[in-house]
Computed example of a mutant assay.
Amino acid sequence: MTDRALVVVRAGALTTVQDRGRPGHAHLGVPRSGALDARAADLTNRLVGNPPEAAVLETTLSGCSVRPRSTVTVAVAGAPCPVTVDGRPAAWGAPVRVPGGALLDIGAARSGVRGYVAFSGGVTVEPVLGSRSTDLLSGLGPPPLANGTVLPLGRPAGPPARVDVVPHPAPPSELVLRVTLGPRDDWFTDAALRTLTRYPYAVSSASNRIGLRTEGPALERSRAGELPSEGMVLGAVQVPPDGRPVVFLADHPTTGGYPVIAVVHPADLPGAAQAAPGTPLRFVAVRHRR
């Protein structure tokens, strides 16, 4: 067995393998998947000398611990957290050399939700439809990590970045999502449209990789009944029967029958990946389709 591998010692609350996902398969019913905070995942890959498409680990709230079988360069970014190697503090947001057999521990997030851990050479589990990403909705890709899981690593593609630390956006204390209203905003009353863009919401604890759920005022429809199922896109703001908006994230279904009142600007979605439950949330309309 190759020594280019790591063993999961502590899997954490939810740790998955993620890369840039598998876009382009929605016509087959396959979600996009991929890292929720793509900026953080790309940053960790740059820090260890990987190409941007290399697979990384995405942790959730409680971090994880792994033991590489050979010396590897590692970088951790996303949600700020303590990092140790064999119990000794190591840098967050910078390349770190971890000797073979040492225990790398990524601690609980101090703020934010999701951390990203890149290894020189990338995680090289078998790709499915061109991606190594775990998709929690469809079940494609490797299962979420468990204690004792062994993950293969590729050969380093290049040297690590020559930096001490790099700037990185902090998790939001208030999440502001710019939205374009439509395509089904005409299924809602004018009062509902005003409510969406003028009243505060909060991130719900029921949020996950499929969608960011919200707590706040319900949105009133102007039409009864349901839509035939239609295509959904990343960032779609769907309104289920309880009237509380749901922002579709990377593992979202490819179709849905509830009306989409708006779509979030793609640049704002990494912030949604890091918004902890209870974070204040505002939707800001930037363009109207009508």
Rank of each mutant, 00 (worst) to 15 (best):
I261Y: 03
D86R: 03
A41P: 04
F119T: 10
V176Y: 11
V96A: 10
V98C: 01
P156E: 08
V85C: 05
V56N: 03
T254I: 05
P51D: 11
P277Y: 02
E126N: 06
R287C: 10
L43V: 07
V76P: 08
H25G: 09
G130H: 08
V17N: 12
R290F: 14
W187A: 10
T71A: 14
I106L: 12
V125H: 02
F188Y: 14
V165S: 10
V125I: 07
E58F: 00
L234F: 14
L36D: 13
A285L: 11
A108K: 13
A94D: 04
T254M: 04
W187H: 12
G256M: 01
P167Y: 01
L28T: 06
L14N: 04
G231C: 10
G211I: 03
E220G: 12
G257H: 04
P241C: 02
A250G: 11
A26V: 06
R209C: 11
P143F: 08
A161G: 07
V203I: 09
S173M: 09
R88H: 15
A267E: 15
Q18P: 00
Y199K: 14
N50H: 11
G87T: 03
V239N: 01
D164W: 02
P127T: 05
L196P: 07
G115M: 07
L140H: 00
P82R: 05
P51E: 11
P200W: 00
A224L: 15
R67H: 06
V125R: 02
D135N: 08
V76E: 13
V56R: 04
T279V: 14
L249E: 08
F283T: 08
A55Y: 00
R110I: 09
P228S: 09
L249A: 02
V247S: 05
G148R: 09
L227R: 01
N50K: 03
A94P: 01
E215N: 15
P80C: 09
A94R: 02
L269Y: 05
R110M: 15
G141Y: 00
A35N: 04
V166G: 01
D135G: 11
G278P: 07
P144V: 10
H25T: 12
D19Q: 03
D135H: 05
P160Q: 14
D190I: 02
V83C: 08
T149V: 07
L181Q: 08
R22E: 13
L234P: 07
V85D: 06
S229P: 06
L57N: 12
L140C: 01
L151K: 07
T71S: 15
A108E: 15
M1W: 15
D19F: 04
W92S: 13
V9D: 14
D186T: 13
P259V: 10
R184K: 14
L151E: 13
T60E: 08
V179I: 02
L281K: 02
L136T: 09
G121C: 06
P172C: 07
R114N: 04
F248K: 13
P266H: 05
R282K: 11
T71H: 05
R290N: 12
I106Y: 06
A55G: 00
A91E: 13
G158T: 03
E58Y: 00
R287T: 13
